[in-house]
């Protein structure tokens, strides 16, 4: 599904990733672990099309990423993002936050998804009216609203307590079993055990 071939990346003169080659399959739950500064978030940024690597190739569904004509449309249709911070839009309700990702989504779909994530009763609330764990679940719902083929999660539990962190990774495991590819980064080795595949990133190498 996703193939990285000899990917290297530099920030100015700093080489932060070196010759990364990997293949990620449909429905695989992959976790990158590593210390701060190891390069795991840069790798995630490249794999998720947000960052163009200095060298190497990235292929999605066998197609080179540079060959995709409308990257916005590609992201909207194929990729869901979850970040360490929820990045919910403060002036929109939970429901409106979900709808910015997909204006055409039906209320039935929203209800089904939020029911599953245990946030259905929060739909009319604003982000500042709900807890940190609930906000991150809304962010997950926003990532899932378009039924993406792959979800990229950058330290998704970085701001959550252990119980909420566990809920998030259990959910990722379920999603992967349902066929959604999950690619996440984490510092937490216990949570990493939920993944099918673990990669440790050290000094920009796997």
């Amino acid at each position: 599904m996703i193939t990285a071939i000899n990917i290297s990346h530099r920030y100015q003169n700093d080489l932060v990733l070196q010759n990364i080659t990997l293949h990620i399959f449909k429905g695989e739950f992959v976790v990158f672990t590593g210390e701060s500064g190891s390069g795991k978030s840069t790798l995630l940024s490249i794999l998720s099309t947000l960052l163009t690597p200095s060298e190497g190739s990235l292929l999605f569904f066998g197609e080179k990423i540079e060959a995709i004509a409308d990257i916005d449309l590609f992201r909207r249709e194929n990729i869901g993002f979850i970040f360490q911070f929820h990045y919910l839009i403060e002036y929109l309700t939970v429901k409106e936050n979900l709808k910015i990702a997909n204006e055409k989504v039906t209320d039935t779909s929203i209800n089904a998804l939020t029911q599953r994530l245990g946030i259905v009763e929060l739909l009319d609330k604003y982000p500042n009216e709900i807890s940190g764990g609930q906000r991150q679940r809304v962010a997950i719902a926003r990532a899932l609203i378009n039924k993406p083929k792959v979800i990229f999660a950058d330290e998704p539990t970085g701001n959550l307590d252990s119980q909420n962190s566990l809920i998030v990774f259990e959910l990722f495991q379920e999603l992967a079993q349902e066929g959604t590819t999950i690619i996440a980064t984490t510092h937490n080795k216990k949570l990493a055990k939920f993944a099918d595949t673990q990669y440790e990133v050290r000094d920009g190498q796997l």
Binding site: S36, S41, L50, F83, F85, D154, G158, T185
Partner: peptide, 12 residues
């Protein structure tokens, strides 16, 4: 706006 900034906060 480059969405990479959402990751840059904890770039590692």
């Amino acid at each position: 706006t480059d969405p990479i900034l959402l990751i840059q906060g904890n770039r590692s």
